[in-house]
């Protein structure tokens, strides 16, 4: 299953608060153009509150645009498209279902029959290393395990576009590294088109082959870096180029007027 082509043209999104409308304070995203090539891995980075999640919600079909359009493989997005999978920061696992039940939830749409559905869900859980916890409930798992379940649940439906909204933001450093490795391994197998929201520059550089930087609200895409390392991405991306790129992005994320070390000299 190949990744799908995501195309966004002139996308503007407003918040529901109409009292802000007069002075334009309700604009969450302004005039976004974005093109995600099939099978690409794009990290979206920006200061908190700049509208990264809003962009994800628009592609996922959760938030209708005020202006502009979103296409997935040439089909305009109106509601949640079946080929788009979403992984949320808060996991969004259903606490009333077991781990297996959560994964099966996404498979119901395919009407596989009970046997095939369970088999496919178990295979998806095995892929993230959680086969043994299939009959636990999400609240009995650690944060990292929960996010593994969420990833398994989304991957099991075979999404051609994968939207991840700060999926590892709530995890501790070591778990985060494990999850990044797991994600890359899964992605190499599936080659879905990934849009990965993060506020961590290192994570963005580590995972993605495109890094998009978003400005303060109203959100606009201000910079696009293409990382030229050979695929599949190596976890040990080091070297001068990347360090300079890192500094560059960090500079963009700093709001103007904040303290910089060079002011001291």
């Amino acid at each position: 299953m190949r990744g799908a082509h995501v195309k966004i043209e002139g996308l503007t999104i407003r918040h529901g608060r109409s009292r802000d409308r007069a002075h334009g304070a309700d604009i969450a995203l302004r005039n976004i153009d974005l093109d995600l090539q099939p099978g690409s891995f794009t990290a979206l980075i920006g200061p908190s509150g700049c509208g990264k999640s809003t962009l994800v919600n628009a592609i996922a079909g959760f938030t209708p645009p005020a202006q502009g359009r979103v296409w997935i493989d040439g089909a305009q997005v109106h509601g949640p498209p079946p080929e788009v999978g979403v992984v949320f920061q808060q996991y969004a696992l259903f606490p009333w279902l077991t781990v297996l039940g959560n994964v099966r939830f996404g498979l119901k749409q395919f009407r596989l029959g009970r046997r095939a559905e369970v088999e496919r869900a178990e295979a998806a859980l095995a892929e993230v290393g959680l086969a043994e916890l299939a009959h636990r409930y999400p609240q009995q798992l650690s944060g990292g395990q929960r996010q593994r379940v969420a990833i398994a649940r989304t991957f099991a439906t075979g999404p051609r576009v994968l939207l991840m909204d700060e999926p590892f933001g709530a995890l501790d450093a070591q778990t985060r590294v494990d999850m990044q490795e797991l994600l890359l391994a899964l992605w190499r197998k599936r080659r879905a088109t990934v849009l990965f929201v993060t506020h961590d520059v290192d994570e963005a550089i580590l995972l993605a082959d495109h890094v998009r930087v978003m400005s303060h609200a109203p959100g606009q895409l201000v910079m696009h870096y293409q990382l030229t390392q050979p695929r599949p991405c190596k976890l040990s991306r080091a070297g001068r180029d990347l360090l300079m790129l890192r500094e560059d992005i960090l500079g963009l994320l700093r709001p103007p007027g904040t303290f910089r070390p060079e002011h001291l000299s």
């Binding site: 949320f88 969004a92 939830f105």
Partner: peptide
């Protein structure tokens, strides 16, 4: 809201 969004993105019909 995240439960509802998760359900929709996992292909749940309005009834489900």
């Amino acid at each position: 809201e995240t439960y509802l969004r998760a359900a929709r993105s996992l292909g749940a019909t309005p009834r489900r």
